[in-house]
């Protein structure tokens, strides 16, 4: 408060006048109806306003779907089996996004296809490298499962959603990168 004393009388009068300004102002119209209309279920994205939004989530929120956690665990244990088994890689558990969310059929399809391709490509790589890929993919998938479980208990948690999106993207990138790199390896059939 001490710096406020330096300027002249006029400016001190200014502060006093400012403090006298009403701290409450009634809006010209009732804003509640519009606000109420935008209050969806907590955790669901509210209807967009005309104002620019910060970042639109590319996630489609589907109706609540049961999370079959058991399936996820079973599939994960297959993936963790040491090479050369690739059954786990071929059929990753369906991409879940917490109860109630759905990443979309297209994502699932691409993911399944890439996993299949990968299983074939890994055969062209030395077994220890193939094992590295499988182990690391298993870690990503374990992370995905963990986040999904956390999201079940805390749906709408933005941090969890962000991390989950990132994990799915990472999985896709690993699948496609390794596919590409392994595909470039000259195999016995190549001249």
């Amino acid at each position: 408060m001490t710096d406020d004393n330096k300027p002249g009388v006029r400016e001190n009068g200014l502060l006093a006048a400012a403090r006298d300004l009403p701290r409450e102002v009634t809006p010209e119209r009732d804003l509640w109806p519009e606000i109420q209309a935008r209050l969806g279920e907590r955790g669901q994205e509210a209807a967009p306003a005309s104002e620019p939004r910060a970042k639109a989530w590319p996630i489609r929120f589907a109706a609540a779907a049961a999370l079959v956690a058991a399936t996820a665990l079973v599939t994960l244990s297959l993936v963790e089996r040491p090479a050369p088994g690739t059954a786990g890689l071929v059929s990753p558990e369906p991409a879940m996004f917490g109860a109630g969310y759905d990443l979309g059929a297209k994502h699932q399809l691409v993911r399944a296809n890439l996993s299949e391709d990968l299983a074939r490509h890994l055969e062209a790589l030395p077994p220890e490298t193939a094992a590295v890929v499988e182990r690391n993919l298993a870690q990503i998938r374990a992370a995905v499962a963990e986040i999904n479980q956390a999201l079940e208990k805390d749906p709408g948690n933005i941090l969890l959603e962000q991390l989950l999106m990132a994990a799915y993207q990472d999985e896709m990138e690993v699948l496609s990168n390794v596919n590409r790199m392994a595909g470039a390896v000259p195999s016995r059939n190549e001249i």
């Binding site: 809006p27 119209r29 804003l31 519009e34 606000i35 935008r38 209050l39 509210a46 306003a49 005309s50 104002e51």
Partner: peptide
């Protein structure tokens, strides 16, 4: 101001 009030309460 009206937009901000809305956004705030939402």
């Amino acid at each position: 101001a009206e937009d901000c009030v809305q956004e705030t309460f939402v």
